[in-house]
Structure formats: C-alpha cells, structure tokens
C-alpha cells in the first residue's frame, strides 16, 4: 500500500497533543473542585493559571490542523478526522474555562465558609471526568460504542444537577445555607453540568469522525 508516512505521523502527533490537552483539562476540573471543597485560594489561583496552558494547547492544535489542511489537502476520513479535532479542541477549551470558573468561585467564596455541601457535586465531577476520558478513548480507538456511552452518561450528570438544585433549594427554604454560598454552589453545579454537555459534543464529533454522520 502506498504510504503517506509524513501525513500519518502528523495525524498521530495531532492525536497525541489532543490527548495531552484532554488530560490537562480533566485534571483541572478535579483541582478546581478540590480548591472549592478546601476553600484553598492557592490551589484555585494555580488552577486558573493552568487554564492558560489549556488555551495554548488549543492554539497549537488549531495551527497544526490548518497546516495539515494546507499541506496535505485531506479528504474523506482524513478530513473528517481533522474537522473533528478542530471542533473537539473548542469543547475542551470551554471545559478548561469552566474548570477555571469553578476555581474562581473558591476565590469569591473565600470569606463565605459553610458546613453545607451537596455530595452530588463531587459525584458530578467524577462522572464528568469519566465522560471526558471515555470520549478521548473513543477517539483514540475509533470506537463509536464508547462514544455513544458518553452521550448516554450525560443523563446521570443532568440528574445529579437536578438533585443538587433540589437540595440547595430545600436548604435555602430551611435557612440551613448562607445565601451567597448557595448561589456559588449552584454556579459550580451549573459549570459541571455544562462540562458534561461539552463532553457529549466531543463524543458526537468522535462519532462524526468515524461514521461521517452528525448526531
């Protein structure tokens, strides 16, 4: 078979860089929440700085995609692959933004300590991280079944968000939570819910890359 060695190497390199970016973004979500749970502004500030690294990854991957399009003029599965990477990188960058947003909540809330917490939020974080990991796994192994599973998992995140909302509302009614804290907590939950949506987008682009079908 005729090989396009350099082209294939470029595509592999692109894949690797995207995996690195996804790992960084996933770690940032966990760290963002950790800063929030511990009300640790140092972790929060470090986390916000790491978001710049995420943005740099985005720009690097975009540049690589454009260079490959210009040089190799990809078609069919190659074009779908590069188009998907260009779209996925935007979702990863947004996820990174939301991880930093969660860390920013820590800084805003520094003086609003509260014993109230909803464990569902930790669960949301774990599920979101799993979704990102699986979406990237699906991308690497071109496995549309795994990608479909990511899309289904989003229901769990949505349910946890609804459950969090109900618990926070109940706490507000019973005056068991500080009003500011309740607001910030809901914002964190909303950021996580949005992260779940972006993970779904990534999974949908993986499916497009494999099948050419847009969900």
């Amino acid at each position: 078979m005729t090989q396009r060695t350099n082209f294939d190497k470029e595509l592999d390199r692109l894949k690797l860089t995207l995996v690195e970016m996804a790992e960084l973004v996933s770690a940032n979500i966990k760290e963002g929440l950790s800063s929030f749970l511990k009300m640790d502004t140092e972790i929060a500030e470090a986390n916000i700085k790491k978001d710049k690294l995420v943005n740099e990854y985005e720009q690097t991957i975009e540049k690589d995609c454009l260079r490959i399009i210009q040089r190799e003029q990809p078609v069919a599965k190659d074009l779908r692959f590069i188009t998907s990477v260009l779209k996925m990188v935007t979702d990863l960058e947004r996820i990174g933004d939301h991880a930093a947003d969660i860390a920013k909540m820590t800084i805003f809330m520094e003086k609003t300590h509260s014993s109230f917490f909803v464990n569902d939020i930790e669960e949301m974080t774990t599920v979101c991280q799993k979704m990102i990991k699986q979406a990237i796994e699906a991308f690497i192994s071109t496995d549309k079944e795994i990608a479909s599973a990511v899309i289904e998992t989003d229901d769990i995140v949505d349910d946890l968000f609804e459950s969090t909302k109900a618990k926070v509302a109940e706490a507000i009614r019973n005056k068991k939570v500080d009003a500011d804290f309740a607001l910030y907590l809901m914002m964190v939950a909303k950021y996580l819910e949005r992260i779940g949506d972006h993970a779904v987008n990534i999974a949908e682009w993986v499916i497009y890359s494999i099948t050419g079908e847009r969900l």
């Binding site: 078979m1 005729t2 069919a76 779908r80």
Partner: peptide, 19 residues
C-alpha cells in the same frame, strides 16, 4: 464520495493510501 465514500477502496485511493 469525497467526504464519506462507501467503499474502502475508494477511501484508500482518494486519501492517497492506495496499492
């Protein structure tokens, strides 16, 4: 044909991995 060919041989040819 150029976005989603149905035949693997077509895909191989148009993506330059043919032989």
């Amino acid at each position: 044909i150029f976005s989603k060919p149905l035949q693997p041989k077509t895909e191989e040819y148009i993506t330059g991995r043919f032989g």
